[in-house]
Design a protein around this nucleic acid. Structure first.
Lengths: 236, 236
DNA sequence: CGAGCCGTTGATATCACTCAAACTACGTGG
DNA sequence: CCACGTAGTTTGAGTGATATCAACGGCTCG
């Protein structure tokens, strides 16, 4: 299998499997396939029987729940290195949500049975998964909190601040400059609101000199204000 | 240790540890303490360093996040057999939320280090935990969905239907009759709304003959209507 | 008996959703 | 080169659900 070597490298680059030994990763690489994904592709739908779990290699995947009337609640947007569809592997066997590719790329697929065998053999893998799911639970807790007691401007401010901190940690972009990695429509979904509301909110922020927007480029002009907003100390 | 035998029995009654062997449970029982809890007691607060995890033995525990202005978002309410505070054991070491006893009882405490050793030794325990956390993630997904795209009456209807199904599964109460196991104030918190709104919503439902309320006793008169409501097919 | 928690009801204001429409940028194919 | 469709975005206007403030009565527990 000529591609297995690169799969092994992909696994190593995901912090999920970084703590494993070379041999352990090789064992995983043996059981997984790489699948190209195009934009708009539905990877699985809520209620479907789960054959295994997935890891994003490149591109972005949206996880959401869709109501009978068509409106959707975005649960996550995952990028390279993140796993999804794992819940059904450990509990219930059916996916609790729908996964759709929103930016073309590729993903790895790990079949359920073989993956479970690997966990059984290897406590380090189990710990990695427990940590990954704990992180997911933290993210959900934050999301429920913000949906329950924060308004849209506050959620948006929190989103920008988080994005800024991430960029700074990776020494990325210029100071105060920020490139959105998802469309505004999707961002609205992530914040749990409608496109129109997000648009208006950005408009008001620009009006007040907190930031300026040009397409996907956002320049933060008054970070302190954003921080006060996120805390609830100020309002628009 | 005279109480260890009963601790072992408690562990066995929690479905988390039911799949373990007697010996495996005995190993856990050796490392854990039982702690009485009184109503209103704060078990841990958000941001606190986590020394281990907890399991409800009796009573109820509310897990919530509290904003600087004092308003709170209820994440869960746990009853006997459920574990909490586990996230910090596997990731980050600090609690992501606050735990408060809302109904007097008792809980088990398992110290972090010893618990991790048990997982390492024992794949079945790891699987139990992965399943438990998967279940938690499912619950969160449902919560985010309902907060994002459902109104209060719909959330309330969904809550009643879920409670009814649980009671029926355990062959409990009379047909259509339901005893709330938490106060209405707390229920409002669980639904992500204010006490007043819940009160009004119940009032309207009673007005329309969907149900009748007497203290904590709720009699469901028109289950079909509730189901339509939860689906979004009808409205109040 | 007083304090605190719980529950209800009323009045008010506002935030955000919905519907509707137009505008940009982009590529395609005629 | 231009008409066309599509995706993304913005703006406007109206509306409704829900939070908030305020006041009250009942209950339990110390």
């Amino acid at each position: 299998m000529p591609q297995q070597k690169s799969v092994n490298a992909l696994l190593a680059s995901s912090h999920l499997f970084a703590p494993l030994t070379e041999d352990q990763r090789a064992a995983l690489a043996d059981i997984c396939h790489i699948v190209p994904r195009f934009r708009g592709e539905v990877i699985f739908v809520e209620g479907e029987e789960a054959a295994g779990l997935h890891i994003v290699v490149k591109g972005k995947v949206k996880i959401s729940r869709i109501a009978p009337d068509g409106r959707e609640a975005v649960l996550h947007v995952f990028g390279a290195g993140e796993l999804f569809g794992e819940v059904a592997v450990f509990q219930g066997s059916r996916f609790p949500a729908t996964a759709e590719c929103v930016e073309a790329g590729a993903s790895l697929f790990l079949p359920r049975r073989e993956f479970l065998l690997n966990i059984e053999r290897d406590p380090a893998l189990a710990f990695s998964l427990l940590a990954a799911m704990s992180l997911r639970l933290r993210a959900f807790a934050a999301k429920v909190e913000s949906l329950t007691l924060k308004g849209i401007p506050q959620r948006l401010a929190a989103y920008f601040l988080l994005a800024l901190r991430e960029r700074e940690a990776q020494g990325g972009e210029k100071r105060g400059e920020l490139r959105l990695d998802i469309s505004k429509a999707l961002l609205a979904g992530v914040l749990g609101t409608a496109r129109e509301t997000l648009s208006r909110c950005l408009g008001r922020m620009a009006e007040q000199g907190i930031l300026s927007v040009d397409g996907r480029k956002v320049r933060i002009l008054d970070r302190g204000f954003l921080e006060d907003l996120a805390k609830g100390a100020k309002n628009l």
